[in-house]
Amino acid sequence: MNDEELTLLGVVILFGVGVYGLLLTHHLIKIVIALQIIGKAVIIAFAVAGTMSERVQLAQSLIVTIIVADTMVAVISLALVIQVKQRLGTLDARELSNLRR
């Protein structure tokens, strides 16, 4: 196994960890963290893809864009979580299930 494949394996594991977190944790902050882990996995994937296809320059600029967008999503979701905490007094995703059926 060469370096790139090893890193790709790392990406898959990191992505899996994030999805696992989304599937099982009920804590809203932890859910945001899980999303961030997935985001980081994707960023590493781009870095590997850049080296594999010898387009490092392109990959770098893409990664910067992704980081920006990723941060925006994190900011908005955290802002929402704060609102949830303030208005509903909970951080448990299970209690956020009044909209059903």
Binding site: V19, L22, T25, H26, R101
Partner: peptide
Amino acid sequence: LRSTQTGELNWNIWGIV
């Protein structure tokens, strides 16, 4: 079928995965 719309976030993620 309506009872599958539980409104729980984790359940929704299960659906996506």
